[in-house]
Design a protein around this nucleic acid. Structure first.
Lengths: 126, 126
DNA sequence: TAAACATATGAACAAATATTCATATGTTAG
DNA sequence: CTAACATATGAATATTTGTTCATATGTTTA
């Protein structure tokens, strides 16, 4: 154990003054913490849902696939803004699309997304 | 094919071509759209989860209540940063806290939060 | 082929946000 | 009361992010 590590241990023990029982727990939790990347991905996922334009788009699509102009009509947002946001959602794999003639038809990429949305809605109405 | 997907299929058949657009469906959806405020609240909720520091804090707390210095130790973040983020989480009612001597003990405010987090984690590991 | 339509995209700008630093507040022990 | 500790907070800064505007790409129709 290096001098630095010893110092760290000392800090941890001193730290126990504040919580007592928490030190053990913190150690245990620390060993099972998901890695940095996992947290990054997780926050990126939620970040996608953290904008009202995007959440509206996702809600609309959760009712059924539709083309860009439908979304523009449904929400009160510019075609350009919708398109930009759809690109982000597509990158995050929350929506998929197919081309149909002049139109691009978008849809929710899987039911998981819908579930998370529902969970959120349930939460806010309490 | 999930029940929801079956339902979507049914709706799809009712659509006119997308030149007349998905007029019927859009109308139907439009009538049932949650109000602006609901979408705002929903996106605010997810915005709170859309930052890796906050999501780490919430994950840690989902393992058990702990004080600020525990969180600081567990994550690699400044005490100040943790405190600022905890304030946001508290404002959003995602965490609650109680004072215990010098310490402030934080905990997840309800199981719903944990469920949403889990859903997210499940989603990213696919 | 040209015109009309649907969608995508780059650049610029404005607004929102996370962190840091310094310091304030609140609590306990000596 | 004072020192030491735990947490909170305001201001400043740097970064990220969403929208707009102009325009490009791609598809169908006349």
């Amino acid at each position: 154990m290096s001098e630095r590590e010893v110092e760290q241990e000392k800090i941890k023990i001193e730290h126990s003054e504040c919580g007592g029982k928490y030190v053990e727990m913190v150690k245990k939790i620390n060993d099972n913490m998901p890695c940095e990347e996992e947290f990054y991905d997780l926050s990126e996922l939620f970040k996608m849902l953290g904008d009202s334009t995007r959440v509206k788009i996702l809600y609309a699509l959760s009712q059924g696939e539709m083309c860009v102009c439908d979304i523009v009509e449904l929400l009160d947002v510019t075609q350009s803004a919708v398109s930009h946001q759809l690109r982000l959602l597509k990158q995050a794999r929350l929506v998929k699309y197919r081309r149909s003639g002049k139109s691009a038809i978008y849809s929710i990429s899987d039911d998981h997304v819908y579930t998370i949305l529902s969970m959120g809605m349930e939460h806010i109405s309490e």
